[in-house]
């Protein structure tokens, strides 16, 4: 019996409240996501933007509880009206697919190398929707056509390794869409691809998202990717949201010094001839976070307050919020 995938009354598909994730092993106890909250409206694209170790992937994976056994989740996660933190493994399995599906950076992780693409997509549909294998196989063909795989009928019988990188990525997207999810989670799906293929996949995802009205959470380290696909962006640093807002506003007028630094250190067309302005230092050690603002040790605009008091994510204008004691200071010089 499939789970109800309709969004809650207010049109919200996912709601995360004060999410924290810690990885606990015998040797270490590390807080990788620290007090993250957000809501995602149906049909909306949210980009989690951050560098390695910022907690963006863990945040996204928490929505389906796709985390290693050492993870301890705190806070509240609602996906399509279901409390994910309280669900049994069985219930979670029924959530994965029809309600929320995921695409990965490396498509080979999603496919079993010994079965054909068509078989795997069809069987996913059969197990979730209980329709006949014949009908499921027909749907699989439609899906491959939907993701614009050329000569789709022939590709149904291909094994994953027989496809090129771009086609494999498309096939994985087809697999993710096989149960008509209301929420798509994408984890750097284009990072490993060549430039000319990356743009194809990004545009495909953008089009599918729009046509199918799927809400999407897109994890990326690349501002360029965020600019292409996002409605809203949440910039993560050291396991926390440091800035959220509509993508165009955040890019045009970043309010958090980290966002400013990230934009400055990204090489643009116009950068040539001038030295880059990098953010000094390196990413924070999650096991040894500063008591105040996590970005303070690298921040050029910090005050003593930043070292002592942790800033909370507070609204600065309609739809925008920033976790910084001196946001305007940084925002004044875009």
């Amino acid at each position: 019996m499939p789970l109800d995938a309709t969004p809650a009354r207010n049109g919200t598909i996912a709601e995360v409240n004060d999410l924290s994730v810690r990885f606990v092993t015998r040797d270490r106890d590390v807080l990788v996501v620290d007090g993250v909250s957000f809501t995602l409206a149906a049909g909306e694209v949210l980009c989690l933007l951050g560098e390695s170790g910022s907690g963006k992937t863990v945040t996204m994976r928490s929505l389906l509880r796709l985390l290693p056994p050492s993870a301890r989740i705190g806070g509240r996660i609602d996906v399509a009206g279901h409390d994910v933190t309280a669900m049994s493994d069985r219930q979670l399995e029924r959530l994965r697919g029809p309600v929320a599906a995921m695409v990965f950076q490396e498509p080979m992780t999603a496919f079993d190398p010994v079965f054909t693409i068509g078989t795997q997509i069809a069987e996913t549909i059969v197990s979730h929707e209980g329709i006949s294998y014949r009908a499921a196989r027909a749907r699989a063909l439609e899906l491959l056509e939907l993701v614009q795989i050329p000569s789709a009928a022939r590709r149904l019988d291909a094994y994953p390794h027989e496809l090129s990188g771009g086609l494999r990525q498309r096939a994985m997207i087809a697999l993710a869409l096989s149960c008509r999810p209301a929420l798509l989670l994408a984890d750097e799906p284009t990072t490993a691809l060549d430039a000319t293929v990356q743009i194809q996949i990004l545009l495909l995802l953008r089009q599918l998202q729009r046509d199918l009205g799927m809400a999407t959470i897109f994890v990326t380290h690349d501002i360029g990717v965020a600019c292409e696909v996002a409605d809203r962006v949440a910039v993560m640093y050291g396991g926390r949201f440091v800035e959220t807002g509509p993508i165009d506003q955040v890019i045009a007028q970043p309010a958090h010094p980290y966002t400013v630094g990230l934009l400055n250190s990204t090489v643009h067309e116009i950068s040539r001839g001038a030295p880059l302005v990098p953010i000094p230092g390196g990413p924070p050690d999650l096991a040894d976070m500063p008591p105040g603002c996590s970005f303070a040790p690298r921040c050029s605009a910090k005050s003593t307050r930043c070292d002592e008091i942790r800033p909370v994510l507070a609204p600065i204008s309609a739809g925008r919020a920033v976790a910084c004691h001196h946001p305007t200071l940084a925002g004044a010089k875009p």
């Binding site: 001839g273 001038a274 030295p275 880059l276 302005v277 990098p278 000094p280 230092g281 390196g282 050690d285 040894d288 303070a296 040790p297 690298r298």
Partner: peptide, 20 residues
């Protein structure tokens, strides 16, 4: 073109301190 923003001097002391 080579204003050195890369040298050790550019790193604030807080970053240079080593925890382990």
């Amino acid at each position: 073109m080579s204003t050195s923003t890369t040298g050790l001097a550019a790193l604030p002391p807080a970053v240079r301190k080593v925890a382990r």
